[in-house]
Design a protein around this nucleic acid. Structure first.
Length: 1148
RNA sequence: GGGCCUUUAGCUCAGUUGGUUAGAGCGUGCCUCUGAUAAGGGCAAGGUCUCAGGUUCGAGCCCUGAAAGGCCCA
């Protein structure tokens, strides 16, 4: 037993890998759980990470918060669940599998086979769950992880044969089942480990949720025009489009003539000029012209009739610059005057435009509409039409645009839906049929030109929605999808809603739940509320393959639909196909085989083929993972989560929203009590990380190069509401400023403790291994102990408040105090050869500080603290815990906190710092001793002798004194105390200030220092200021070696006497010897022989300070003369003297 | 178009309830210390606190408006 030697240069990443090995071999995490079993629970719910690719450094940010908070709560004495989550289902996985297999369309998937495709998706998730598990472990994230190799093995077995029977080691013993079944049970109580949102329980729990929605009448099938990705062949919901969903794109916009028609359907001619009249219409999506039905004008806009070339056009007055060539304004009219005008559509030659009731496969949209598009063409009014772009006349294609659709509904217009799922024009569009939407623009321009309808084509750059997964440009498409109603938005304050109104509207119920949650930072609350107010109904369906099987069964005969609440209900209702499905997870294609009977007409009901929105998968986890269905007691114990944390952008409408919506429907309660949010990680150049920009950093690379303690330090020292700039330069800075100084303090301690054979004494409590606060007479010791306990209180309060920034930056400041003041000033106490009480106190103090500091830091940087703990505690204490992370959270020793020490030490440090500045200003190097320093510090005129000693030593002066007669050092400046006098005099204050300034500063200062008031004459009024209302400041007198700051002034006596000079030379000599010792590679404790040759003054000085020199340099034999052959030699000159010194190790 | 956030030194950021001379780190220059040494420390230069109004005896901070950037929603 004893401290092991500490290398002063460490390969931190290598050390971290060693510690990972240690944790694994010692099963440190299992021990932690055992130690805290049965303690008050603290519930955290992990927001699932998408297991689709390796994780990035941005994931490291959130995961560091999660780990640090969990470690902190555990050390405080709580039992936690430590369950990580993987998000598994949805389009993002499909897209990657499609890429792997080289699939281009949905048809490729169907011909490949749904069953195998779904298996590939599952296997991919398992593969990347394994990778992310390994990366998270590397980050030091302590969770109930699955063995990564087991996850990989399961993936392989699944691809091999999902029906084979296997056995896994479970929590309470082996668990046997088919591969498919066991994969579906990952994360369940019997298997443990991370939860997977593809689990059978997760899916059925969502069924239960959807059934409750349905029972309340909130699940409905709706028709809408939605953003649609032609590559993925699926609708993109509002939730998905808003973040990653826009790109700056340049398209060819087109301005088109819509010739006006008279009542007889003949071309309308202008009465004045006899020229044919036309509307001028502009669009950025030419393909939608094929489906034009109407043209909209702003009712309040002013329109003009202009002659341009051999035609007469109508357009908004504010858009005249759209016209090419000369034009002549013939008249003005209001938008409302245009209403009802008829025109010839640009593609009335297509069959689709000629069909009565419109052209769409969705029957519903043509109900009650008898006209064809060609018959329906007319000008309608729309308030949203503006003049900022285009012509002020908007082309309306109700089957191709969301707002167009709403207008179409309002005016009962026919609708034309031109595109199939993959963006190809369907039959009914003649030459266009079979063409892809992305390739029709130019042919359409050519066709319009041929028909003499084309006015102008011009490139136009705009924000255009793209698919957040594959980046294809989206189109708008008429679809039928499934929705959860959010309820109406009432036009009155929330407080005035009746219970009935609230009961009808889910959004207000969610708001009530949001009120019960603390949002950090606070603006999170407003963000979530804003989203809830504006939120549309939640589109939960997606026409894809891999995901939640929506439990909606529709009758083939009567169109009645029902939502099935769980597997038991399904089995009970099944009339066909159960035997095909049985034994499978509730995924396509097997679930599709199950048919039930329609309670209305007795017909056969089939499941809708759609899969679910993936945020359903993530939002249900407070129920599915906490055993809501199987173990209500367990659920009540762990629900709600005390705390969740995720990156803000996006989550208000995604995970936070789905958590809130689902918990509100199921339990009318908050699923989490605190939400700690943080911003976005970007590269060091402030731009988002992009592989192609060369500024992206991969997680593994960062961990290998900078080490994860450094990464974690970058994360926790960041203010969470600001974007984090992440990169190697920042990492180097953190290593230099935090990790290396910490390590050096530790290494310093161990080096000397080993030399002196020092070991901690007294009783040992393994929960609090630093022991009680040591008692010491030494002022440095007492000061650092005050600081330590102040820090303990601060870090505890900050972490309690999710304030990692304050916690970590406070620790940073403390480490600076420790290394740059406590250790620097205490160094000689450790060096000195006699082992007295003071040395013992120094060891006891520094040891205590290091151990407690290590433990305060353990949640933030678990690796370096573990390395320090192993040596500082485990190597020297019988019965110590195996890991620092098994110890209890440090307790603040309130009795050790004494503010007087802090003030006095601050004063001493201020004086020392100013003294050094004064020396520096006079070009007097510190190695040259000087006679005297003088300080003026107002009323602070005394310091204890030990602090004075520190100051004299620091400043290298023989004597230090506070001067009361500041006039020796400074001039005075008197100022009114604004804080008291401002309110007292109000508007008169400037005159009071001026009157005070007019007095002689030194006499005012004298009065104030004597405790007397000052009389002023202001506007003929006699005013008296109390001494407390006047602030006396000092300015250094010119010509002294003086420095001054905030009322403190320090002066140095710059006279160098011959004695001082000799002492200075002796110190220079020592310095050269110390350098030589290092060059020769000696140990700190090695004794030496010295030979030297020196010029006059220096030789005298060496003689005079012989004892001092020998003592400082551990010299046992010092003599003049040429160095021996085997000596290390240095020659140097300084201060006009020359010297040659030889050194060798002394061997008795 | 609406909401929220940001704007302080060359860069990255602090800045307490409004108070007198606005700070830190990095970078730059000079100096210095010396068993933390491929480190440490000090000093200096560097600021119309984005702009314009307002409130106030007094505004980096509060209010109004504008600009730029970001996030969110239309």
């Amino acid at each position: 037993m004893g401290f092991q030697e500490v290398p002063n240069r460490v390969d931190f990443p290598a050390q971290e890998r060693e510690i990972l090995r240690f944790w694994k071999e010692s099963r440190a995490f299992d021990t932690l759980r055992t130690l805290h079993r049965g303690e008050p629970h603290w519930s955290f719910i992990d927001g699932p990470i998408t297991a689709n690719n390796p994780m990035g450094v941005h994931h490291g940010w959130g995961r560091t918060y999660k780990d640090a908070m969990q470690r902190f709560r555990t050390m405080q004495g709580h039992e936690l669940r430590y369950q990580n989550g993987f998000d598994c289902q949805g389009l993002w996985v499909e897209v990657e599998v499609e890429k792997e297999k080289g699939f281009k369309t949905k048809k490729d998937i169907e011909s490949f086979g749904l069953e195998e495709f779904v298996r590939l998706c599952k296997a991919r998730v398992l593969k990347y769950a394994a990778v992310q598990t390994e990366q998270s472990i590397r980050l030091g994230y302590w969770m109930d992880w699955n063995e990564p190799d087991t996850l990989r093995w399961l993936g392989e077995k699944l691809l091999e044969n999902p029906r084979q029977i296997i056995t896994l080691e479970g929590v309470e013993g082996p668990v046997t089942g088919t591969v498919e079944e066991l994969i579906g049970r990952l994360g369940m109580p019997e298997l443990g480990g991370s939860y997977f949102t593809f689990s059978t329980e997760n899916n059925y729990m969502i069924w239960t949720f959807l059934k409750r929605c349905w029972e309340k009448g909130w699940v409905y099938r709706g028709v809408d025009v939605m953003p649609w990705c032609p590559r993925c062949a699926t609708g993109i919901s509002q939730h998905e489009i808003v973040t990653d969903g826009y790109a700056e794109l340049t398209h060819n916009s087109v301005t088109v003539r819509f010739p006006l028609l008279d009542e007889n359907g003949q071309p309308r001619l202008d009465a004045q000029t006899g020229l044919p009249e036309a509307l001028l219409v502009w669009t950025t999506t030419p393909w939608t012209l094929t489906s034009n039905v109407a043209a909209a004008v702003g009712p309040d806009l002013t329109y003009v009739k202009v002659r341009n070339g051999d035609r007469v056009y109508y357009l908004a007055k504010g858009t005249l610059s759209m016209l090419r060539g000369d034009y002549q304004v013939l008249g003005e009219l209001k938008g409302t005057e245009l209403e009802g005008w008829k025109y010839a559509g640009p593609f009335d030659d297509l069959p689709a435009a000629q069909i009565a009731g419109g052209f769409s496969k969705i029957k519903e949209v043509s109900a009650g509409v008898s006209q064809s598009a060609a018959q329906a063409h007319r000008v309608i009014l729309w308030e949203e039409v503006g003049e900022t772009e285009g012509t002020g006349i908007v082309h309306i294609a109700p089957g191709c645009g969301a707002e167009d659709f709403q207008l179409g509904r309002k005016y009962g217009l026919p609708m034309i839906a031109p595109l199939d799922e993959e963006g190809v024009f369907v039959d009914g569009f003649l030459w266009l049929s079979g063409m892809h939407v992305s390739e029709v623009a130019d042919p359409i321009f050519a066709n319009l030109k041929e028909k003499d309808l084309l006015y102008r084509v011009a490139p136009y750059t705009h924000r255009y929605p793209t698919c957040w997964r594959c980046h294809s440009e989206l189109v708008f498409r008429l679809v039928d999808e499934w929705f959860i109603s959010m309820g109406e938005v009432y036009d009155k304050p929330r407080s005035e809603l009746t219970p009935e109104e609230k009961a009808r509207s889910l959004r207000y119920q969610i708001m009530d739940v949001v009120d019960q949650i603390r949002w950090i930072p606070e603006f999170g609350y407003a963000r979530e509320m804003d989203w809830l107010r504006n939120m549309h109904d939640w589109m939960i369906s997606k026409k894809r393959y891999w995901g939640l099987a929506l439990p909606i069964w529709v009758c083939k005969e009567c169109d009645h639909y029902e939502v099935i609440g769980d597997e038991k209900e399904l089995q009970a209702r099944a009339v066909e196909g159960w035997e095909i499905f049985e034994g499978h997870t509730p995924h396509r294609p097997f679930i599709d085989a199950v048919k039930i009977q329609c309670p209305h007409c007795g017909g056969k009901m089939e499941r809708v083929l759609d899969v679910g929105n993936p945020w359903l998968d993530a939002g249900i986890v407070p129920f599915s993972t906490l055993r809501y269905r199987s173990d209500p007691d367990y659920w009540r114990k762990w629900y709600p989560a005390q705390w969740i944390t995720e990156s803000f952008p996006g989550q208000f409408r995604n995970w936070f929203y789905s958590l809130l919506a689902m918990a509100t429907v199921i339990d009318q309660s908050p699923p989490f009590l605190q939400n700690f949010g943080f911003a976005t990680l970007v590269a060091e150049d402030g731009r988002p990380m992009h592989k192609s920009w060369g500024n992206a950093i991969e997680f593994n690379e960062a961990a290998d190069r900078m080490g994860v303690d450094v990464m974690r330090w970058l994360y926790v020292t960041q203010r969470p509401e600001n974007d984090l700039l992440f990169g190697y330069n920042r990492g180097d800075e953190a290593r230099r400023q935090f990790l290396i100084p910490l390590w050096n303090a530790y290494s310093f301690f161990v080096t000397y403790a080993r030399l002196d054979g020092w070991l901690p004494q007294g009783t040992f409590d393994r929960d609090f291994p630093e022991g009680a606060t040591p008692q010491s007479e030494n002022i440095l010791d007492r000061w650092i102990l005050v600081r330590l306990n102040q820090l303990t209180a601060r870090v505890t309060a900050s972490l309690d408040d999710s304030d990692f920034y304050t916690a970590s930056t406070s620790i940073g400041v403390f480490i600076d105090d420790l290394t740059n003041w406590y250790i620097r000033r205490s160094r000689r106490r450790f060096w000195k050869s006699q082992s007295d009480d003071d040395k013992q106190a120094a060891y006891a103090t520094l040891y205590h500080v290091l151990v407690k500091l290590t433990r305060l830091l353990a949640p933030l940087t678990p690796f370096v603290t573990e390395a320090m703990y192993q040596n500082l505690v485990r190597n020297v204490r019988e019965g110590a815990y195996e890991s620092v992370h098994h110890t209890r959270w440090p307790v603040t020793d309130e009795t050790a906190i004494d503010g007087v020490f802090l003030e006095q030490m601050n004063l001493a440090r201020m004086v020392a710092s100013l003294g050094l500045a004064a020396r520096s200003g006079a070009n007097l190097k510190v190695r040259q001793p000087l006679a005297r320093a003088m300080a003026f510090a107002g009323n602070n005129r005394s310091l204890p002798p030990d602090l004075v000693e520190i100051i004299t030593d620091e400043l290298n002066v023989k004597d230090f004194e506070f001067v009361e007669e500041a006039s020796r050092l400074v001039n005075f400046r008197v100022l009114p105390d604004n804080k008291t006098l401002g309110p007292r005099f109000g508007a008169l204050f400037p005159k009071v200030r001026a009157a005070l300034a007019a007095l002689d500063p030194s006499s005012v200062a004298a009065l104030v220092q004597a405790g007397q008031g000052v009389k002023l004459n202001v506007d003929g009024q006699e005013i008296e200021l109390a001494p407390a209302e006047i602030i006396v400041q000092t300015m250094p007198v010119e010509g002294l070696a003086v420095a001054s700051d905030k009322g403190f002034t320090v002066a140095i006596d710059a006279v160098i006497t011959p004695e001082l000079r000799a002492e200075g030379l002796a110190r220079e000599f020592v310095r050269r010897v110390q350098d030589l010792r290092k060059t020769a590679g000696l140990e700190i404790s090695d004794r030496i022989r010295l030979r030297f040759v020196a010029t006059g003054l220096l030789a005298d000085a060496v003689e005079k300070f012989r004892d001092y020199i020998m003592n400082e340099t551990l010299t046992v034999d010092l003599a003049t003369g040429e160095p021996d052959a085997e000596m290390v030699v240095v020659e140097d000159q300084f201060d006009g003297e020359k010297v040659k010194i030889g050194l060798k190790r002394y061997t008795p």
